[in-house]
């Protein structure tokens, strides 16, 4: 009786502790080990499709024939595009076969890079930048808005399989913070797109998501109509004149 009570209490304490510590460990996808699921098993067949087989040949031609393993990252990327944005273990095995290495050498690469998704993602994988400049400009609110709108948690796929939301680190777009990236896997590797949507507000972000749902392709780049690319709102304020030629010593006088 007391034993059970104590165990229960211990469990409560444990979960309480875990909640606080696990929050700091949020990786882009999945665990560092594989668990068999019906759609992700080593014995499922997986092959590059015919169009991509040509691309595989082209990628391999970039590398010396005795250094085929150098092609591991481009091939994994191609496999991910073909497979709707994620890499099942059988796709990694297929890549290992192409570059003639042991599968574990491919798993090592795929687990190292966070942009290789080893669990299912939506057709539109939305990655909200979480690095400091975007965070200061409100990326937390944007992520919250999208998650609330879609009714999912981070790294979860919506029921219709269209969307998933993840976090990523700085994409070098801080001047237009906050931003998010949309990896579009809806048309395989041919229609694959990887676009930035910048100057977001929570409302704007939800609008973009809705546009994607309707099958539209909203224009990429800054979402602030007053700005052109990363230029300031309302036109340039500095460097308005013709730039001066670079200063140079008087070569004639020197002679």
């Amino acid at each position: 009786m007391f034993g059970r009570l104590a165990a229960q209490r211990l469990n409560e304490i444990r979960t309480a502790i875990r909640r606080t510590t696990q929050a700091s460990r949020s990786f882009s996808t999945a665990l560092n080990y594989h668990i068999d699921t019906p759609d992700n098993k080593p014995d499922l067949p997986w092959e590059f499709n015919n169009a991509n087989k040509e691309k595989v040949k082209e990628i391999l031609s970039f590398y010396p024939s005795n250094y085929k393993q150098s092609a591991v990252i481009p091939l994994l990327d191609l496999a991910q595009q073909q497979n709707g944005g994620w890499l099942p273990v059988s796709a990694m095995n297929a890549v290992a076969k192409v570059i003639e290495v042991a599968p574990i050498r491919v798993y090592e690469v795929a687990t190292f890079y966070t942009m290789f998704n080893r669990t299912k993602v939506g057709k539109y994988h939305l990655l909200v930048c979480g690095t400091t400049p975007c965070m200061i400009r409100g990326s937390r609110g944007i992520e919250e808005a999208i998650l609330k709108h879609l009714g999912v948690k981070r790294n979860e796929v919506t029921k219709d399989g269209l969307f998933s939301v993840g976090e990523m680190e700085c994409m070098g777009c801080c001047v237009n913070a906050p931003m998010m990236t949309v990896a579009d896997y809806s048309n395989g590797s041919e229609g694959y797109a990887y676009n930035y949507y910048e100057d977001l507000t929570p409302k704007k972000a939800v609008e973009i998501v809705e546009a994607f749902r309707k099958g539209e392709k909203p224009p990429r780049g800054t979402q602030n109509p007053g700005r052109v690319n990363c230029g300031p709102e309302g036109g340039n304020t500095t460097l308005l004149g013709e730039p001066k030629a670079p200063p140079c010593r008087d070569l004639d006088a020197a002679e």
């Binding site: 560092n32 080990y33 080593p42 042991a102 574990i104 090592e108």
Partner: peptide, 17 residues
């Protein structure tokens, strides 16, 4: 069979499958 999986503080030795 063995490899180094993951990165940073999440790095671990394993067989993946």
């Amino acid at each position: 069979d063995l490899g180094m999986l993951g990165r940073g503080s999440g790095e671990e030795i394993g067989t993946y499958v």
